[in-house]
Each structure stands twice: as structure tokens, then as C-alpha cells.
């Protein structure tokens, strides 16, 4: 395969006070793919994702970004994070800033754009998600779905190479899940590299290029949605999907 590797993770380990949350995980992420990580609760999906952004410090193993091992220095770390966006379960918008300022704060502070450029960019992004009228509103005035969509474009404003999604719809009311998934699908179709941890298996099957099944901190299986759902030899994987995709 001559695919362009963005991440290469080797033997990553993360312990939480003696409990191994991530157990020697190795994985490659290719440019332009939508990689979905699924698995039962407590299988270490979120922790693994947070390690990719170094929000959790791995206890062992290595992460290569474009073939280079991640530096430990604060400056390198900040530069790295500018290229790797993150979307959180609880949105984590900044409640004291307007929607526009939420989006422009980081591009301006890190010197990527002038305030004017950032404002124009914010307008474009808000236009795209149909929230241009909310630019001067504050986060508490938005619905959950709106907040998450703003959080996604806030990450996009940094023009990242990769977007990490940590259960982006888990904290939403059911009727708001759709609008967020639609935006994510759009991004995937535009060729954005995405690593998504989710419980929305139907959505994952529809959008994912590849799926990773994690169990007990390890990768149990990697494959296309079709391979994973229909043709897995692993009983744990089969059990998981049959429960979730059983006709109701």
C-alpha cells in the first residue's frame, strides 16, 4: 500500500493506578481515512484517543506523526496539537466567550491568522453549519446539537490535518444526534482524516473506511465495516455487533 501514514502508534500503554486501560496498542492512521474505534464500555477506546492527543500521557510506547516521534517539549506539543483537532463528548465550548470568539481565539493567539482573517473564517464556518446568526450568542444559549457543531468547526478553524472525536454524540438528546452526524459525514466525504470513538454503530458502518474493535484495552480486530460486522471470526466481536444490530 502506498498510502500516506499520518499516525503510527507502537505498543502504546496507559495505566490508571494499576489498571491497564490501554494495553500495547499498535495502529496506523492513513491520510483521508475515517477510522472508527468501537467496542464495549471500558474497553479503553477513549483513553487511547486521548493518548493520541497527549491529553493522557502514555506510560510506554511511541507515537509517530508523519514518521517523527512526538517531542516532549511544551512548544513541540503545542505545535502538534494545532495539527490534531479534538472534539469532546461534552463539547467544552468556552462559556464566557461568544461563539465567534470561541472559534477565533486559538487561530489568533497562536498567530495563524489575524483577527480579521479569523473572523472571516468563523463566519464561513458558521455559514456552513447554518449558525451564522448565532455568532454573537454565548454557548449557554445554544442547544446541545448546535454546541457540538460549533465545537467541530472551532477545531476546523485551526485547519488541522486530523480530527479526533471522543464520543461526540453521547451527551446529546436523541433528536440532536442527526445534525452532528450529518456534519461529520460531510467532513469525511470532503476527505478529512478522522479518528472517531463512538457508540453509533450504524453510523460507523456507513461512514468508516476502517473499524477498530477494542476490548480490554487491546485491539481485538481491525477491518472494513463489512469484514467486522458480517465476517468476523472473533466471538466477542460477533456478540457485540449481533446485540447492537439485532432487528428491534
Amino acid at each position: 500500500m502506498s498510502k500516506d501514514v499520518i499516525f503510527e502508534v507502537r505498543e502504546l500503554v496507559k495505566d490508571f493506578s494499576g489498571v491497564r486501560a490501554v494495553d500495547r496498542v499498535s495502529l496506523e492512521v492513513f491520510r483521508g481515512e475515517a477510522l472508527f474505534i468501537v467496542g464495549p464500555s471500558g474497553s479503553g477506546k477513549s483513553t487511547f484517543l486521548r493518548c493520541l492527543n497527549l491529553l493522557e500521557k502514555p506510560d510506554a510506547g511511541e507515537i509517530f506523526f508523519h514518521g517523527k516521534a512526538l517531542g516532549k517539549r511544551e512548544k513541540e506539543l503545542n505545535a502538534y496539537r494545532e495539527k490534531v483537532g479534538m472534539v469532546f463528548q461534552h463539547f467544552n465550548l468556552f462559556p464566557h466567550l461568544t461563539i465567534r470568539k470561541n472559534i477565533t481565539l486559538s487561530p489568533v493567539l497562536t498567530g495563524r491568522m489575524s483577527q480579521d482573517e479569523a473572523d472571516a473564517e468563523a463566519e464561513k464556518l458558521l455559514e456552513r453549519i447554518g449558525l451564522a446568526s448565532k455568532a454573537d450568542a454565548y454557548p449557554p444559549q445554544l442547544s446541545g446539537g448546535q454546541k457540538q457543531r460549533v465545537a467541530i468547526v472551532r477545531s476546523l478553524a485551526m485547519r488541522p490535518e486530523v480530527l479526533l472525536f471522543d464520543e461526540p454524540t453521547s451527551a446529546l438528546d436523541p433528536e440532536m444526534v442527526g445534525e452532528v452526524l450529518a456534519l461529520m459525514k460531510e467532513l469525511a466525504q470532503d476527505g478529512m482524516t478522522m479518528v472517531v470513538v463512538t457508540h453509533e454503530i450504524g453510523f460507523a458502518c456507513e461512514v468508516a473506511n476502517r473499524m477498530v474493535f477494542m476490548d480490554h484495552g487491546r485491539i481485538a480486530e481491525i477491518g472494513t465495516p463489512d469484514e467486522m460486522v458480517n465476517r468476523s471470526a472473533n466471538p466477542r466481536v460477533r456478540e457485540f455487533f449481533s446485540k447492537l444490530l439485532a432487528p428491534r
Binding site: 496539537r81 483537532g85 461534552h90 467544552n92 468556552f94 486559538s106 465545537a151 485551526m158
Partner: peptide
Amino acid sequence: IDRGQLEAGRSLGLSYSRTMCWI
């Protein structure tokens, strides 16, 4: 302040001190 605020700031490439200062 919820820890998510710090994480959001950091994940946007802001340094610790900038996150502290602005968020």
C-alpha cells in the same frame, strides 16, 4: 472550572499559560 475547559484549550494548540489566561 471543569477540566474539559483546560483540555479544550490545550487541544486547540494553546499553551498552558494561554489557556489559563484566556479560558
